[in-house]
Simulated assay, not measured.
Amino acid sequence: MITSIDINADLGEGARDDALIMPLISSCSVACGGHYGSEYTILQTVKLAMANGVKVGAHPSFPDKVNFGRKKMSLSPSELKSTLSLQLNSFIKVCNGLGVSLNHVKPHGALYNFAAIDEATSKILVASIMETGLEPVLYAPKNSVLSCVAKDYLPVAFEAFVDRRYTDDLQLVSRTLNDAVISSPIQAFEQLMSICAEQKVRTISGKTKDLEAHTFCVHSDNPNALEILNLIYEELTRLQIHIK
Protein backbone atom coordinates (compact mmCIF):
# COMPACT_ATOMS: atom_id res chain seq x y z
CA MET A 1 0.00 0.00 0.00
CA ILE A 2 1.39 3.41 -0.98
CA THR A 3 1.60 5.83 1.93
CA SER A 4 3.97 8.47 0.57
CA ILE A 5 5.42 9.69 -2.70
CA ASP A 6 8.10 12.15 -3.81
CA ILE A 7 6.83 14.68 -6.35
CA ASN A 8 9.55 16.86 -7.87
CA ALA A 9 9.57 19.81 -10.25
CA ASP A 10 12.28 21.66 -12.16
CA LEU A 11 12.17 25.23 -10.88
CA GLY A 12 14.14 28.47 -11.04
CA GLU A 13 13.76 28.36 -14.81
CA GLY A 14 11.85 31.59 -15.33
CA ALA A 15 8.36 30.09 -15.18
CA ARG A 16 5.80 32.37 -13.55
CA ASP A 17 4.27 29.87 -11.13
CA ASP A 18 7.21 28.76 -8.93
CA ALA A 19 5.66 30.23 -5.78
CA LEU A 20 2.37 28.41 -6.47
CA ILE A 21 4.04 25.13 -7.44
CA MET A 22 6.39 24.89 -4.47
CA PRO A 23 3.70 24.03 -1.83
CA LEU A 24 2.51 21.13 -4.02
CA ILE A 25 5.82 19.24 -4.28
CA SER A 26 8.41 17.65 -1.99
CA SER A 27 11.66 18.19 -3.92
CA CYS A 28 12.79 20.65 -6.56
CA SER A 29 15.65 20.73 -9.05
CA VAL A 30 16.95 24.26 -9.48
CA ALA A 31 18.52 25.61 -12.69
CA CYS A 32 22.06 26.65 -11.86
CA GLY A 33 23.20 28.75 -14.80
CA GLY A 34 23.58 26.32 -17.68
CA HIS A 35 20.22 26.46 -19.46
CA TYR A 36 18.83 29.21 -17.24
CA GLY A 37 19.57 31.15 -14.12
CA SER A 38 22.15 32.99 -12.07
CA GLU A 39 23.27 33.07 -8.46
CA TYR A 40 20.37 35.43 -7.78
CA THR A 41 17.69 33.09 -9.21
CA ILE A 42 19.26 30.16 -7.37
CA LEU A 43 19.13 32.13 -4.14
CA GLN A 44 15.49 33.13 -4.59
CA THR A 45 14.39 29.61 -5.51
CA VAL A 46 16.23 27.93 -2.65
CA LYS A 47 14.74 30.45 -0.20
CA LEU A 48 11.28 29.65 -1.57
CA ALA A 49 11.96 25.93 -1.14
CA MET A 50 13.10 26.45 2.44
CA ALA A 51 9.93 28.38 3.25
CA ASN A 52 7.86 25.45 2.00
CA GLY A 53 9.92 22.62 3.47
CA VAL A 54 10.91 21.34 0.03
CA LYS A 55 14.20 19.50 -0.56
CA VAL A 56 16.56 21.21 -3.02
CA GLY A 57 18.70 19.79 -5.79
CA ALA A 58 21.00 21.12 -8.48
CA HIS A 59 19.80 20.96 -12.09
CA PRO A 60 22.94 21.32 -14.25
CA SER A 61 22.81 21.23 -18.03
CA PHE A 62 24.67 21.89 -21.20
CA PRO A 63 25.63 25.60 -21.16
CA ASP A 64 23.05 26.66 -23.72
CA LYS A 65 20.53 29.28 -22.67
CA VAL A 66 19.51 29.94 -26.27
CA ASN A 67 18.05 26.44 -26.64
CA PHE A 68 17.16 26.04 -22.94
CA GLY A 69 19.59 23.13 -22.67
CA ARG A 70 17.41 20.94 -24.88
CA LYS A 71 19.89 20.40 -27.71
CA LYS A 72 22.93 18.16 -27.34
CA MET A 73 26.20 20.09 -27.44
CA SER A 74 29.50 18.70 -28.71
CA LEU A 75 31.81 19.62 -25.84
CA SER A 76 35.22 18.19 -25.09
CA PRO A 77 35.46 16.19 -21.85
CA SER A 78 37.31 19.06 -20.19
CA GLU A 79 34.73 21.61 -21.36
CA LEU A 80 31.85 19.51 -20.05
CA LYS A 81 33.64 18.89 -16.76
CA SER A 82 34.36 22.60 -16.36
CA THR A 83 30.78 23.77 -16.90
CA LEU A 84 29.31 21.07 -14.66
CA SER A 85 31.73 21.90 -11.86
CA LEU A 86 30.96 25.60 -12.22
CA GLN A 87 27.21 25.03 -12.05
CA LEU A 88 27.36 22.62 -9.13
CA ASN A 89 29.72 24.81 -7.13
CA SER A 90 27.56 27.88 -7.74
CA PHE A 91 24.55 26.02 -6.40
CA ILE A 92 26.40 24.60 -3.40
CA LYS A 93 27.76 28.06 -2.55
CA VAL A 94 24.21 29.40 -2.29
CA CYS A 95 23.07 26.39 -0.24
CA ASN A 96 25.99 26.78 2.16
CA GLY A 97 25.19 30.45 2.61
CA LEU A 98 21.61 29.60 3.56
CA GLY A 99 22.51 26.59 5.69
CA VAL A 100 20.53 24.17 3.54
CA SER A 101 21.67 20.70 2.42
CA LEU A 102 21.99 19.61 -1.19
CA ASN A 103 19.49 16.74 -1.46
CA HIS A 104 20.07 15.66 -5.03
CA VAL A 105 21.45 16.35 -8.48
CA LYS A 106 19.37 15.94 -11.61
CA PRO A 107 20.80 16.76 -15.05
CA HIS A 108 18.55 18.77 -17.33
CA GLY A 109 17.20 18.28 -20.81
CA ALA A 110 19.64 17.07 -23.45
CA LEU A 111 22.29 16.36 -20.81
CA TYR A 112 19.84 14.11 -18.93
CA ASN A 113 18.86 12.25 -22.07
CA PHE A 114 22.42 11.86 -23.38
CA ALA A 115 23.91 10.82 -20.03
CA ALA A 116 21.20 8.17 -19.86
CA ILE A 117 22.76 6.42 -22.89
CA ASP A 118 26.40 7.60 -23.01
CA GLU A 119 28.97 6.20 -20.59
CA ALA A 120 31.61 8.90 -21.08
CA THR A 121 29.14 11.68 -20.33
CA SER A 122 27.81 9.79 -17.32
CA LYS A 123 31.31 9.35 -15.91
CA ILE A 124 32.05 13.07 -16.24
CA LEU A 125 28.79 13.97 -14.51
CA VAL A 126 29.38 11.53 -11.65
CA ALA A 127 32.99 12.68 -11.25
CA SER A 128 31.88 16.31 -11.13
CA ILE A 129 29.40 15.50 -8.36
CA MET A 130 31.91 13.48 -6.36
CA GLU A 131 34.49 16.27 -6.51
CA THR A 132 32.14 18.47 -4.50
CA GLY A 133 32.87 16.24 -1.52
CA LEU A 134 29.14 15.65 -1.03
CA GLU A 135 27.03 12.56 -1.66
CA PRO A 136 23.69 13.83 -2.97
CA VAL A 137 21.12 11.50 -4.46
CA LEU A 138 21.33 11.31 -8.25
CA TYR A 139 17.96 11.37 -10.05
CA ALA A 140 18.20 9.15 -13.14
CA PRO A 141 16.08 6.72 -15.16
CA LYS A 142 16.16 3.08 -14.07
CA ASN A 143 18.44 0.85 -16.17
CA SER A 144 20.02 3.90 -17.78
CA VAL A 145 23.76 4.06 -18.37
CA LEU A 146 23.82 6.96 -15.92
CA SER A 147 22.22 5.00 -13.08
CA CYS A 148 24.55 2.06 -13.70
CA VAL A 149 27.66 4.25 -13.71
CA ALA A 150 26.59 6.08 -10.55
CA LYS A 151 25.38 3.18 -8.42
CA ASP A 152 28.81 2.37 -6.92
CA TYR A 153 29.51 5.99 -6.02
CA LEU A 154 26.27 7.80 -5.22
CA PRO A 155 22.77 6.98 -3.98
CA VAL A 156 20.45 6.81 -6.97
CA ALA A 157 16.71 7.52 -7.10
CA PHE A 158 14.98 6.27 -10.24
CA GLU A 159 12.89 9.02 -11.81
CA ALA A 160 9.79 8.93 -13.99
CA PHE A 161 7.94 11.75 -15.69
CA VAL A 162 4.30 12.45 -15.02
CA ASP A 163 3.84 14.85 -17.94
CA ARG A 164 5.85 13.17 -20.72
CA ARG A 165 5.06 10.28 -23.05
CA TYR A 166 7.36 7.27 -23.28
CA THR A 167 8.52 5.26 -26.30
CA ASP A 168 8.44 1.46 -26.34
CA ASP A 169 12.10 1.37 -25.21
CA LEU A 170 11.21 3.70 -22.28
CA GLN A 171 12.88 6.78 -23.69
CA LEU A 172 11.04 10.09 -23.57
CA VAL A 173 9.22 10.90 -26.78
CA SER A 174 11.02 13.74 -28.55
CA ARG A 175 9.50 17.15 -27.95
CA THR A 176 9.56 17.66 -31.73
CA LEU A 177 6.73 15.11 -32.03
CA ASN A 178 3.04 15.53 -31.32
CA ASP A 179 1.80 14.27 -27.95
CA ALA A 180 5.29 14.22 -26.40
CA VAL A 181 4.01 16.35 -23.53
CA ILE A 182 0.97 15.41 -21.44
CA SER A 183 -1.12 18.52 -20.87
CA SER A 184 -4.22 16.89 -19.39
CA PRO A 185 -4.16 16.88 -15.57
CA ILE A 186 -6.28 13.71 -15.50
CA GLN A 187 -3.98 11.85 -17.89
CA ALA A 188 -0.93 13.00 -15.95
CA PHE A 189 -2.43 11.75 -12.69
CA GLU A 190 -3.35 8.44 -14.30
CA GLN A 191 0.22 8.00 -15.54
CA LEU A 192 1.57 8.84 -12.09
CA MET A 193 -0.62 6.24 -10.39
CA SER A 194 0.08 3.60 -13.01
CA ILE A 195 3.83 3.91 -12.51
CA CYS A 196 3.66 4.42 -8.75
CA ALA A 197 1.11 1.75 -7.86
CA GLU A 198 1.63 -0.81 -10.63
CA GLN A 199 5.15 -0.02 -11.93
CA LYS A 200 3.67 0.08 -15.42
CA VAL A 201 3.46 2.79 -18.08
CA ARG A 202 1.46 2.92 -21.28
CA THR A 203 3.74 3.95 -24.15
CA ILE A 204 2.81 6.26 -26.99
CA SER A 205 2.19 3.21 -29.21
CA GLY A 206 -0.27 1.77 -26.67
CA LYS A 207 1.98 -0.94 -25.21
CA THR A 208 2.32 -1.51 -21.47
CA LYS A 209 5.88 -1.57 -20.15
CA ASP A 210 7.44 -2.09 -16.72
CA LEU A 211 8.76 1.13 -15.17
CA GLU A 212 10.01 1.51 -11.60
CA ALA A 213 10.51 4.94 -10.07
CA HIS A 214 11.14 6.54 -6.68
CA THR A 215 10.53 10.18 -7.64
CA PHE A 216 8.07 11.69 -10.11
CA CYS A 217 8.61 14.88 -12.09
CA VAL A 218 6.30 17.54 -13.46
CA HIS A 219 8.00 20.18 -15.62
CA SER A 220 7.37 23.73 -14.46
CA ASP A 221 7.40 24.96 -18.07
CA ASN A 222 4.49 22.70 -18.96
CA PRO A 223 1.70 25.24 -19.66
CA ASN A 224 -0.62 23.20 -17.41
CA ALA A 225 1.94 22.40 -14.69
CA LEU A 226 -0.01 24.14 -11.96
CA GLU A 227 -3.28 22.48 -12.92
CA ILE A 228 -1.57 19.07 -13.06
CA LEU A 229 0.06 19.51 -9.66
CA ASN A 230 -3.13 20.82 -8.05
CA LEU A 231 -5.03 17.75 -9.22
CA ILE A 232 -2.25 15.42 -8.07
CA TYR A 233 -2.20 17.10 -4.66
CA GLU A 234 -5.97 16.89 -4.29
CA GLU A 235 -6.20 13.27 -5.39
CA LEU A 236 -3.26 12.07 -3.28
CA THR A 237 -4.76 13.85 -0.28
CA ARG A 238 -8.08 12.11 -0.94
CA LEU A 239 -6.26 8.77 -1.14
CA GLN A 240 -4.35 9.58 2.07
CA ILE A 241 -1.00 9.40 0.25
CA HIS A 242 1.50 11.85 1.71
CA ILE A 243 3.72 13.93 -0.55
CA LYS A 244 6.87 13.31 1.43
Rank of each mutant, 00 (worst) to 15 (best):
I2L: 15
S4P: 03
I5P: 00
I5R: 08
D6R: 13
A9I: 13
D10P: 02
D10V: 12
D10N: 14
G14T: 10
R16F: 14
A19I: 13
A19V: 12
P23L: 14
I25H: 03
S26I: 09
S26V: 08
S26M: 08
S27Q: 08
S29W: 02
T41A: 09
T41Q: 11
I42A: 04
T45M: 05
M50W: 00
A51V: 04
N52V: 10
V56T: 14
S61Y: 06
S61K: 04
S61T: 07
N67Q: 05
G69K: 01
G69D: 03
R70A: 10
R70Q: 12
K72A: 12
S78A: 13
L80D: 03
T83F: 01
L88P: 00
N89L: 10
F91T: 01
G97A: 09
L98H: 09
H104W: 02
V105W: 02
P107A: 06
F114A: 06
A116K: 00
I117T: 09
V126I: 15
A127S: 15
G133M: 13
L138H: 10
L138T: 09
A140Y: 01
K142W: 05
K142H: 07
K142S: 12
A150Y: 08
A157T: 08
E159Q: 10
E159I: 08
R164D: 04
R165N: 14
Q171V: 10
L172S: 08
A180Q: 06
A180C: 13
V181N: 07
I182V: 14
I182Q: 02
Q191P: 00
M193Q: 09
I195W: 00
A197C: 15
V201M: 00
T203V: 06
T203I: 04
G206M: 08
D210F: 06
A213P: 01
H214K: 14
T215G: 01
C217E: 02
V218S: 08
D221G: 03
N222C: 11
N230H: 12
L231P: 01
Y233D: 13
Y233A: 15
E235I: 11
